[in-house]
């Protein structure tokens, strides 16, 4: 197992290096000059030259890249041109917000997706299956930002039950934190629930055909015991791995959800960074997204090995 983990980590290193190269050089080509953006209204050439020197923008690109990479390896992502704060500090503040949203969304997705997928698989080929599958496909087709707007319209504007936007930290008030993150989590969790449902359905259909399920039925076990105790335990293995991977995709979804609900998270950071030409922030967010995705891929692979008895042995 340790050998497997070591091999997977080694394989990830060149990918991460390439991501860093792509992220750095691609975003250096963003239109506009960050030194000009930082210098404010009608700056003098001396001020611009000072800012270029201060942020290393006057260095050749390869030098800038390796300085940037060396800094990142030491946890220094640079300074935000817009806020003047260290980016690592911003990441520490914002990443937990998005992770909380993503985990709550995944919880909602699993709570809806797994029972719906099992139900559809049991009733395969019936109107129930078609209905559940169509609802699942509908869940995949709803734009998250539109669903967010509709939920705000209904639960915040019409009923006044929940806030329409903003964020309160869990440490400040757990109840308010839940109130502020409930709607965004539902929005993020909807598409994820559809994906979990589709994977659970496919996986359960395959498992329900296998010999050990037939044997369990032949022994006279009740159908719900066959499904829950025997089939589901095996059917959920691919669902666990794909759900882990999908957590990375939720980061993508969080960009829009956080924008709609005005949540100061990781996703909103990239949008703010793009519009203020804050290259360093955009680079940091894209790179962190890739690192998180690669870590989740590793966890998904590990989970598959641990949960699959054949591979474990």
């Amino acid at each position: 197992m340790l050998q497997f983990i070591a091999r997977r980590i080694l394989v990830s290193i060149p990918t991460l290096f390439l991501v860093s190269v792509l992220v750095f050089f691609l975003l250096k080509l963003l239109p506009g000059d960050p030194a000009l953006a930082l210098a404010g209204q009608e700056p003098s050439p001396e001020v611009i030259a000072y800012i270029r020197a201060r942020y290393g923008l006057d260095q050749p690109l390869p030098v800038q890249y390796f300085t940037w990479l060396w800094g990142i390896l030491q946890g220094d992502f640079g300074t935000s041109i817009r806020t003047g704060l260290p980016i690592s500090e911003m990441l520490v503040q914002r990443l937990p917000v998005t992770l909380q949203l993503s985990l709550q969304a995944m919880l909602i997705a699993l709570m809806i997706g797994i029972p719906a997928g099992v139900f559809a698989a049991i009733h395969r080929g019936t109107p129930i299956d078609y209905t559940v599958s169509l609802i699942g496909l509908g869940g995949l087709s709803i734009p998250s930002f539109w669903l967010g707007i509709m939920l705000i319209l209904f639960f915040a504007v019409s009923l006044g039950w929940l806030p329409s936007g903003g964020y309160v930290r869990f440490s400040e008030s757990p109840i308010d934190n839940l109130r502020y993150t409930l709607l965004p989590s539902i929005v993020l969790g909807t598409a994820a629930a559809a994906i979990v449902m589709r994977h659970t359905r496919s996986s359960m259909i395959a498992v329900l055909k296998q010999d050990f399920v037939r044997t369990a039925r032949a022994k006279g076990l009740k159908e719900n015991i066959v499904v829950v105790r025997h089939a589901l335990r095996n059917g959920l293995i691919p669902v666990v791995t794909t759900s882990t991977l999908h957590l990375g995709e939720l980061l993508s979804g969080a960009v829009l959800t956080e924008q709609v609900f005005g949540i100061p998270g990781f996703g909103k950071m990239i949008v703010d960074g793009v519009f203020s030409r804050d290259y360093a922030v955009v680079q940091a967010v894209v790179l962190c997204s890739a690192v998180i995705f690669i870590i989740l891929s590793l966890i998904a692979d590990l989970a598959y090995v641990i949960l699959s008895p054949r591979l474990r042995s």
């Binding site: 990918t15 990375g248 995709e249 993508s252 960009v255 829009l256 894209v286 890739a290 995705f293």
Partner: peptide
């Protein structure tokens, strides 16, 4: 490397 960056983040 491209697949490691979430689709929408890369598109943005």
């Amino acid at each position: 490397a491209l697949l490691a960056v979430p689709f929408l983040v890369l598109a943005i």
